[in-house]
Design a protein around this nucleic acid. Structure first.
Lengths: 268, 268
DNA sequence: CTCTGCGTACCGGTTTCCGGAACACAGGCC
DNA sequence: GGCCTGTGTTCCGGAAACCGGTACGCAGAG
């Protein structure tokens, strides 16, 4: 922020913690916001820290399995351990309670199963879920995963990524087909994503499981992109895509509530 | 490991890092796996750490915004900053997601467990892994490590190093023997590496674990040597070294895809 | 073969961390 | 009220980790 000064570029990051540990953590944060691998030299320029210091920090993080060195061993990326932490965190987040309440109220209002979802790698993961009281329903547990290109949440989240990120996900693995409605053509998917971005919601019309319809909206964030969705799902028997759109206001209200819950964590 | 014993229950967690920072991080991990708020006392009992120490740690984490105190200020939960880190991390894991997709497609094609591996220090580390659907399989987690001289990936990667580098790796640690197939003689290993370099692939014929066969190929890089492999592994019951060679084309195609992913993630 | 850019190792001075002991503040019980 | 127990908090000297200037190794470019 605050362009101001001076000689050259931003020079902003300034990963200063007041304690060594916090500096390390800040380094992790910096790397986690990159969607590409970073080099020692690049970090030196970006942070202004002395090279040996950064080298030691990276070494320590790598030794702990939080970072891994990529390819020619001079590029660092996030490690499996860090990803596991992230998934656990989102699955168990302590204000889960509050979110769950919102979700339950939503289900009570609209009468169909609702989910909170997030993107993890190339899949969508169910963070939380409240079932419809109706006897006929689809059974998927919290923690389970579904493909990204044929789920409402997946398309919603995809639409927030940069073209390069999306390309990376799909260039090398085909869009598997699950039903005859599944979008298996990249261009068709891109077209769909454009629609999603414009509308602010995404629909899955039996693209993953026959007979299953979903609608998803984003949980907004004050800053930057969001990695969470609220979505409703139901059998076509009870819910057609048309009728589903009538549920949008309720979904959006719920998403707004969740955003507020997230925001309540700013103190010092 | 070692004694275990003893007085009472599990006492398992043992969040020992060898450095203060890693202890803090382990504490974060522990809290992140909890679905509810934790108290200082509870953590004392769970970790066995002295109370003042934990108190200081929690204070530090709270000060940094990674944890927050709930309500009556004696219960800790995960903070907004940590959640933001988690979301960023998962959003930007597209590289990992793309690689994982390629790997999954490969496993689907050939039907056996496949890995992505890299050289880390003097060991081979599993970066990612997709398991075969077969019920009989070897169980190794992503992030685990195997010796370099008796694994297909290890030999493949070794063959890319300069003689000086190789010498440095082995000068100080003998070639431990794991099975009666393990190459424990430097000269024999050098001979094998020469073969590997010529063929462009490496085979592990029960050199590390009895009954385990592996074949590895390099993920090529535009520039210089590679530090990544794609490898298939299977029990001898299903896969003999001979049959494994028929899988080479598929492996190489996957490796090529990974190379392209890597190429798109280099910058600054 | 030098030259330059980057990654890596070394090491003394300084900062941070460690955790036993002691203190503070409840609430529950006589 | 006085006492006790279970918690959260503060102190502080000894020990350990971190810091980053300097120097070295190893590429690839000129």
């Amino acid at each position: 922020m605050a362009t101001m000064d001076h000689t050259l570029e931003a020079e902003a990051p300034e990963l200063n913690g007041d304690t060594p540990t916090m500096r390390l953590f800040a380094l992790l944060e910096l790397i986690a916001t990159k969607d590409q691998f970073v080099s020692l030299q690049g970090l030196v320029e970006e942070t202004g820290l002395p090279k040996p210091t950064l080298h030691r920090m990276l070494q320590q993080l790598e030794g702990a399995g939080l970072l891994i060195r990529q390819g020619d061993s001079r590029q660092y990326g996030t490690g499996a351990r860090l990803r596991r932490l992230a998934e656990n965190l989102l699955l168990n987040a302590t204000q889960h309670g509050a979110r769950h309440g919102v979700l339950r109220a939503l289900v009570e209002e609209i009468g169909e199963t609702c989910n909170v979802t997030a993107l993890s790698g190339n899949e969508v993961i169910y963070l939380d879920r409240v079932e419809t009281p109706e006897p006929l329903r689809f059974y998927l547990r919290p923690g389970s995963r579904v493909p990204v290109h044929c789920s409402a949440s997946g398309k919603m989240l995809l639409s927030q990524l940069s073209p390069a990120q999306r390309h990376r996900l799909f260039a090398h693995s085909p869009l598997s087909s699950y039903t005859h409605h599944t979008l298996t053509d990249i261009d068709a998917l891109e077209e769909e994503l454009k629609r999603v971005r414009k509308n602010g919601y995404a629909v899955d019309d039996e693209e993953f499981l026959p007979g299953l319809v979903c609608v998803a909206v984003l949980v907004p964030t004050t800053t930057g992109r969001s990695n969470m969705c609220v979505a409703v799902q139901a059998p076509t028997m009870r819910l057609t895509p048309d009728k589903a759109l009538h549920l949008l206001p309720a979904l959006q209200r719920a998403a707004e509530s969740m955003a507020q819950i997230e925001a309540e964590g700013a103190a010092s």
